[in-house]
């Protein structure tokens, strides 16, 4: 990131050179932060069982399947983009980040449709926690989408190297974390 701050803004620069220890350090810092992200969803899932037990009310069940498929597909493309960055293939990286952004955007659209057509009462326990968990997840997806789009714009100026592609890795890790959370939320909200 930092080495792009050189006078000619339009040319492409290699990402800041980091030692393997620094890469490990920044990656570990990222995962320390992700512990707190996990706690958020653990709390929400706990509240779901605390307040609504294992109640499941009838709601729109077609859309979440579409969401799941889109998210899993985006998970695949995102991991391909991470591998491309690890091999220094920046053209392929850009292709797959673009594809992932598109899939992420579509999955957000499907979440929004699912939200709008769920037909539950937020003032009841199941409805309230349903909208809250999906909404929290959608907010995180929005952040993830912002990360992918900004990554796409950044790759115009910065060439990620096999040594330092932490920005790609972090974005992909965050996204894959969200996919795992979605699958848990899907099971917990629709089946248990």
């Amino acid at each position: 990131m930092a080495s792009a701050r050189i006078s000619n803004e339009t040319s492409v620069h290699a990402a800041e050179a980091l030692t393997p220890e620094q890469v490990r350090m920044y990656a570990a810092g990222f995962w320390i932060f992700m512990v707190s992200e996990a706690i958020i969803f653990i709390t929400l899932f706990g509240v779901r069982f605390l307040l609504a037990g294992t109640t499941v009310l009838p709601t729109n069940r077609i859309i979440p399947i579409a969401t799941t498929v889109l998210l899993l597909a985006s998970g695949y493309t995102s991991s391909v983009s991470s591998r491309a960055a690890a091999q220094g293939e920046n053209v392929r990286l850009r292709q797959y980040v673009r594809l992932t952004s598109l899939l992420a955007f579509l999955s957000l659209i499907s979440v929004a449709i699912g939200w709008a057509t769920a037909g539950l009462d937020p003032a009841k326990q199941y409805g309230g926690i349903f909208y809250t968990i999906i909404g929290y997840h959608a907010f995180h997806e929005l952040v993830g989408l912002f990360l992918f789009v900004s990554l796409l714009i950044r790759t115009r100026r910065i060439a990620y190297t096999p040594q330092n592609h932490l920005a790609v890795q972090g974005t992909v890790w965050f996204w894959e974390f969200l996919i795992v959370v979605w699958i848990l939320a899907y099971i917990i909200l629709y089946f248990i």
């Binding site: 930092a2 792009a4 701050r5 050189i6 803004e9 900004s150 714009i153 950044r154 790759t155 100026r157």
Partner: peptide
């Protein structure tokens, strides 16, 4: 700005 690849 750095988030979008611009100089900080």
């Amino acid at each position: 700005l750095p988030w979008f690849g611009r100089p900080a």
